[in-house]
Design a protein around this nucleic acid. Structure first.
Lengths: 190, 190
DNA sequence: ACTAAATAATTTAGGTGTCAACTAATTGAT
DNA sequence: ATCAATTAGTTGACACCTAAATTATTTAGT
């Protein structure tokens, strides 16, 4: 559901010390320990993601003269042959509407997608892949899949599955927090 | 070691189906299965990272009127009170040198860092936090740590540790691949 | 010593990203 | 039926980010 975006976050990891089992700790130190654990996990996650993303960005540029945002937008359209509206793309790619406008402009100019007026709702547009857009995307997608396999080789099948499961859990909780936080934050601000 | 950056990558996850144990599969289908597994893992990782990053970016903007790249650069400087040179910052933040120039410009203008000439090497500059920069950073860092604890609440202590370990392993392999790939890619291209 | 190669930092051009302000169309409460 | 509020999309201003070119300095091979 996310889309190609530039990850930007604080990465300040401190290698080494991956304490395997933490035996009973003084309860007072526990919360600070947990804090550091969360921060370290976040930084390491970000670090890995940025590395992989930078590598894939480079390869897309060198091999296909394109960019990640374009690729991601096309990926969404490939899964939805009937086309998607701008706001749907924005939601799925997790970027702002203005951003989607810009990327769609590029792709339209390259004749890889089309914008068509929605007869149901004259405010809306439907974006679709063109035939050549689809063809181009499939070439890139095949390569992209191989690249991710290569880049994630460091983990074996079981490890990948474990991580996938943990990330699912995390994602679910992030999704839940979404509403409560937007309510509380808008309340906070007015 | 990474720094705040904008993650940009293809996210196209398909919710559901987190098959827990995969019993003996037809060997022929195995490789494709693995491919999809790697791709799904990558997309889910990206999805989670982008969400967390977006949330932290928003909070930094609202509460401190700053940005992630600025925060990340300051975080590096806080760990190195003697200061860092531009190329070191670039390496640690995993962004281009030109980018570091721009962010440093901003922070210097806000009087949060200083650039001083390195007497040892007249090409080089040393960037340091100012007193007010350090004060400001510590306020933000405390909040930032609380935010990450909150955002990663979805995983318990053991789960966070597992994920940290898996990411360490992944990161190590990514680091190893670095050389071989840069060699092979430069060889490929000329 | 001299000069070619390497290194540190900046600049430039262009894509990506945000937010906030805007236009146009639709919805919905009276 | 009307008109305020909402929704879809675009635009503008500005920050970030990269790759490639540029300047200035240092290093190293002869």
């Amino acid at each position: 559901m996310v889309s190609s975006s530039t990850i930007r976050t604080n990465l300040t990891e401190n290698a080494a010390l991956d304490s395997q089992h933490l035996p009973a700790l003084d309860l007072e130190t526990r919360s600070t320990q947990d804090d550091h654990q969360a921060l370290r996990l976040w930084l390491r996650m970000l670090s890995c993601t940025v590395r992989i993303q930078n590598e894939i960005r480079d390869r897309l540029r060198r091999e296909f003269a394109t960019t990640l945002p374009r690729f991601d937008l096309m990926a969404q359209l490939e899964r939805h042959p009937a086309g998607l509206r701008m706001n749907e793309l924005s939601r799925r790619l997790m970027v702002s509407g203005g951003n989607v406008t810009g990327i769609t402009d590029q792709l339209e100019h390259e004749r890889l997608v089309t914008r068509t007026l929605d007869p149901e709702d004259r405010r809306a547009l439907t974006v679709k892949l063109t035939a050549s857009g689809l063809k181009r995307f499939r070439e890139m997608a095949a390569q992209n899949e191989q690249w991710t396999v290569e880049l994630l080789q460091g983990l074996n099948r079981e490890e990948k599955q474990t991580m996938l499961d943990l990330l699912s859990k995390l994602k679910m909780h992030l999704g839940q927090r979404e509403h409560t936080s937007s309510v509380s934050s808008s309340r906070r601000r007015r």
